[in-house]
Amino acid sequence: MTALSALVRRDIRIALRVGGGALIGVLFFLTVVVLMPFAVGPDLALLSRLGPAILWLGALLASLLTLDRLFMADHDDGSLDLITMSRTPLELACAAKALAHWLAAGLPLIVATPVLGLLLNLDMVATGAVALTLLAGTPALTFTGMIGAALAVTLHRGGLLMAVLVLPLSIPVLIFGVAASQAAIVGPMTFGAPFSILCALSLVSLVIGPFAAAASLRHGLD
């Protein structure tokens, strides 16, 4: 337990210090959301209808793009070797790293959501619904994205390839995230059904992600 909390604390610390990049994700999120009205026009009624979708797409891209170097940095400086050799199971270490990433990069996105909701003319209920679905859904994005980050280490390239690998995996999360938000705003579906599925997706990815990432890292050793 000490080992895992030490890993979580280290990763958060690095993310928040000079050269870290946790807050750049929020800036990216903000920029993507600001770009949308220039493409679709400043019609507030239209924006508030598209709002949840825009916020979800922005959060999806922001949380996946910052995942790129989740394992790469540790691989490049040799830390990954020591983590692999250690007495902590690699699966748990992967989960700890993903948790740290979510806390440092995912949580700020959710905190920023109300401000961005204002820009998109979302009312209190709609903003709350989007923030709640992001809270339930972004762990799934981080924990599935982690598989891509592990593959990026194995393949020695990250960036766009990782995005291409991982984005299709995140489609279910996007579907139920936006569906739950829309259900809360306009109906006619109940909020509960898509939201429960969203939570289930997150829980499943909490299990699958670390195992897949650890397996990919083990096979990618060289």
Binding site: V18, G19, G21, L27, V34, P42, L44, L119, N121
Partner: peptide, 29 residues
Amino acid sequence: TYWEWDARLTSVLILFLMYLGLMALWRAV
């Protein structure tokens, strides 16, 4: 509403984003 995509405010918002980007650049190195 608190926000309208008014030309002046929108320009200022983009300026704000550029300030934040610049600060991120200073921090990143």
